[in-house]
């Protein structure tokens, strides 16, 4: 049963990830990425880590991706233009290296699978529950936790400084027009 659920979620995650890279419209990519995050939350549940699953949805799907979608809508980002592949001659080499890499990875996974140590299944443990996560976070790992809070403070200040430099989009447009004019003038001279 768990295997079936895992396979479904893994298929969803990988499918959405491929769709994200394949899409040229950034908003479609964003929607696909939300799918990836939701699938991952499901995978965390199969790993008996419900707290991390909930945090995954709240932080990634509920906050970060909302911000990304918001920016895409605000800037009205256009589709990427398809452009010719430079370095065309290196493509066979790339394919060869990728094949070697995948062969190696498959080899290693095969050996991990049949190795002597086979950890027990994790569905009945209480490691993923809120209490144990909280205890770990506020006792043994208090310093990293405080440092991340400092990091977030820095990010807040940084984001505000970046965002308030030019007050409107119009500022950028006029400046661009000005540079284009000077460029055309210099070329005319």
């Amino acid at each position: 049963m768990t295997i079936l659920i895992f396979l479904l979620l893994a298929a969803l995650t990988i499918g959405c990830a491929v769709a994200m890279v394949a899409q040229r419209n950034p908003l479609y990519s964003a929607i696909a990425l939300i799918g990836v995050f939701l699938g991952m939350a499901g995978i965390y549940v199969t790993l008996a880590a419900p707290f991390i699953a909930a945090i995954q949805v709240i932080v990634y799907a509920g906050a970060i991706m909302v911000l990304v979608v918001f920016v895409i809508m605000l800037l009205n980002v256009e589709e990427e233009v398809r452009r010719p592949i430079r370095l065309r001659r290196l493509v066979p080499l790339g394919v060869l290296l990728a094949a070697i890499f995948f062969a190696e990875a498959a080899f290693i996974i095969y050996f991990v699978e049949t190795s002597a140590y086979n950890p027990p299944p994790a569905t009945q443990s209480n490691v993923g529950l809120t209490a144990s996560v909280g205890t770990g976070l506020f006792t043994k790992y208090l310093l990293p936790f405080e440092i991340t809070s400092l990091l977030i403070l820095m990010a807040i200040v940084g984001a505000i400084t970046l965002a308030r430099r030019v007050s409107t989009l119009e500022g950028g447009r006029t400046r661009l027009r000005a540079t284009e004019e000077t460029r055309s003038q210099t070329s005319a001279d």
Binding site: A63, I64, V68, V71, P144, F145, M154, A155, L162
Partner: peptide, 15 residues
């Protein structure tokens, strides 16, 4: 948990 906070900070500054 910590990777997620880093990702959130990265999202704010990156965007």
């Amino acid at each position: 948990f910590i990777v997620m906070t880093v990702a959130a900070a990265e999202a704010a500054v990156g965007l």
